[in-house]
């Protein structure tokens, strides 16, 4: 596979650097608590390991129990939790006191990055030649309406052959 048009970006950071984002964009204590639990679970299971190149971005050996140093990771996670708690609490108080909850939410939304922040510490593979539109060009602000759910199963009939004049669809598993 060609690597033309690809850019490998190496970043160097810790997860704690992004804790502020989470604290500022979510004021729901239950959500924050859930995020913290998920972070702990992810760290216990083994967080992603930066690959060395685009080809190496697929790393069978990056499974849990690979080349990580658990002691260091636990230490970092502990620091992250402390940082998250501190930043979260201070941000909450500051926002509520100074601007009021609604104003704070408006500011937070306005401050959302158009593209993921280039926080250091991992390698990401970017495709340069994409024709995709700007990341949040037409981001909707309405809430999700949930999956389309119909309860009744269709009544299916088998026919001998499609009617020649009528349009017929075909299914084949994307052959």
């Amino acid at each position: 596979m060609t690597t033309t048009g690809l850019m490998t970006v190496m970043k160097s950071t810790r997860a704690a650097a992004t804790m502020t984002d989470t604290a500022l964009t979510s004021v729901d204590p239950a959500q924050l608590a859930r995020i913290e639990k998920l972070r702990q679970r992810a760290n216990q299971a083994g967080a992603p390991v930066p690959p060395a190149s685009r080809t190496d971005s697929v790393r069978p050996d990056s499974r849990p129990g690979g080349t990580r140093r658990p002691t260091k990771r636990r230490h970092a996670a502990f620091g992250s939790r402390v940082a998250a708690a501190a930043l979260g609490v201070s941000a909450m108080f500051s926002i509520v006191a100074a601007l009021g909850l609604h104003a704070a939410e408006a500011q937070t939304q306005a401050a959302l990055p158009l593209v993921p922040a280039e926080a250091p510490g991992r390698i990401v593979v970017l495709h340069h030649n994409t024709t995709a539109p700007a990341a949040t060009q037409d981001v909707a602000t309405v809430s999700a309406s949930g999956p389309i759910a119909l309860t009744a199963q269709p009544v299916v009939r088998v026919v001998q052959a499609p009617q020649s004049a009528a349009p017929v669809a075909r299914t084949n598993g994307s052959r």
Binding site: M1, T2, R54, S62, H127, T130
Partner: peptide, 23 residues
Amino acid sequence: PARVSVTIDISCMGLSVHDVILD
């Protein structure tokens, strides 16, 4: 084929799609 997956390296076991938080 010039379009490749855009992702960080992902290797985390023990998590599922139900752990994605929607706001």
